[in-house]
Design a protein around this nucleic acid. Sequence first.
DNA 1: TAGATTGTTAATCGATTAACAATC
DNA 2: TAGATTGTTAATCGATTAACAATC
Lengths: 215, 215
Amino acid sequence: MREHLIAAPLPTIRRIPRYLNVLEDFAAEQISFVSATDIANKLGLKPIQVRKDMAFTGIVGKPKVGYKTDELIETIKSFLGWDSATDAFLIGAGALGTALLGYRGFAERGLQIVAAFDIDPKKIGTRIHGKEVFPISKMAELAKRMQVHIGVLTVPAESASQCAHALMDAGITGIWNFSPAELDVPESMTVQREDLSAGLAVLSVRMSEKKQGIV
Amino acid sequence: MREHLIAAPLPTIRRIPRYLNVLEDFAAEQISFVSATDIANKLGLKPIQVRKDMAFTGIVGKPKVGYKTDELIETIKSFLGWDSATDAFLIGAGALGTALLGYRGFAERGLQIVAAFDIDPKKIGTRIHGKEVFPISKMAELAKRMQVHIGVLTVPAESASQCAHALMDAGITGIWNFSPAELDVPESMTVQREDLSAGLAVLSVRMSEKKQGIV
DNA sequence: TAGATTGTTAATCGATTAACAATC
DNA sequence: TAGATTGTTAATCGATTAACAATC
């Protein structure tokens, strides 16, 4: 009997998109069944970890055979909510914001950026990668009309908390925060920090540990 | 007696840049001593966790007083290797690569991108945010001459493993990988994945858990 | 001084890994 | 069938949190 579905640990959630990547490679090679071992080998992980992670998605495999590739892909997409597109706003049409507006990978991960917002009058009214740039004052109205609940925040640290407030007022409940600022928002909102500094810190420390042979 | 310095846990390393951010705010306000509680409050963390993390940097505080702000900033920067600039190459001058080439925040985090590389003949020879774009074939020679050991990889998934190979041949030992591809490199190299999909997955799952009241 | 805060040791919590029966 | 792989329960490992003596 399968255990009742419980909230997945954060490290599990972060690994699941990697499973999806390799599964799509397997599917492209017409491999219709994959085992936890097959997946683990591609990612340098241990089969037992893959098996445990898979259990959280609700997939049921076949002993000796593994998981049906297509079914596992669909189960994972549904688990992540990537099986249907979710609309999002982008706030801050600077260099990083522009890059994200042009990134085609979001579409296959269920995220559709439908409009951009900025304070710069020169940007307002223009289109970036086909998406119109609006003034922040229009956000609440548009969010309501377009039923948008996610904001991708790509503004400088100085403007971040002010923009977070505007997002809250617009009824946005999820913020993907690319700014290094700490956002002070109510419990009801979900904030996901995408902090380049953290990644750079890990790279820096790992390299110097390796050089010094601490490991 | 202070415990002998041991390799810091990964979650600790990822939090340390956040401490640096708030410390710089405190320093800007001329606050010369800060306690673990002061820092924790700004970040929504627990003081004991901040205190434990700080121990890994080697800082020594004063009971009742806390840590000397300036000294803590310097200790953290030195711990992260951010006290002196490290040169890096960027590979893949597309939208994301261009954004990173223009990002001014790296300088204060010890990273100096000194050149870009691409396969597109139209980009080669041009300058992006002041940095010249070279063909990948020039990388080994330039890495040797400029003593560069870090590569920021911003190419599409399809080219990633090929570029990783070129980086290895050029003597690069650390890769900051912004592509979703899995890189197969020798143990001696350090790879830091900067995976947008993982962050998006966490945001997606957290939001749907909140909506369904699973927590 | 009394109170607050550090640094360390111990307890708890959560994630990873191991072991193994069930099964296709 | 025999062997391989799943799903579950137990053991281990590592990070977080608690407790508390030392101390400015």
